[in-house]
């Protein structure tokens, strides 16, 4: 059973987000990370800290010449 995240509600469906392993694709590479997802519509929530932290780091690593 996926962990329900209290206080994080999907604006479209009105249900609580759950933690789920999501696959990211960038520059022909794929990697997985657990992020909040709406169990109904599947919309993924990327927190600012993740976008500006780990995700930005990985992007820079992959964006070679």
């Amino acid at each position: 059973m996926a962990e329900i995240i209290e206080g994080l509600v999907c604006g479209k469906c009105g249900v609580n987000a759950v933690k789920r392993q999501v696959t990211f694709d960038y520059m022909r590479r794929t990697f997985g990370h657990e992020v909040p997802v709406c169990p109904k519509c599947g919309k993924v929530f990327i927190a600012k800290e993740l976008a500006e932290g780990k995700m930005a780091e990985v992007e820079v690593m992959l964006e070679d010449k």
């Binding site: 992007e59 820079v60 690593m61 964006e63 070679d64 010449k65």
Partner: peptide, 16 residues
């Protein structure tokens, strides 16, 4: 496409 280049010298400085 984005190209990220680490500039020489100071670490952590990235030119995108």
């Amino acid at each position: 496409r984005v190209v990220s280049l680490r500039t020489s010298g100071t670490s952590g400085r990235v030119k995108r």
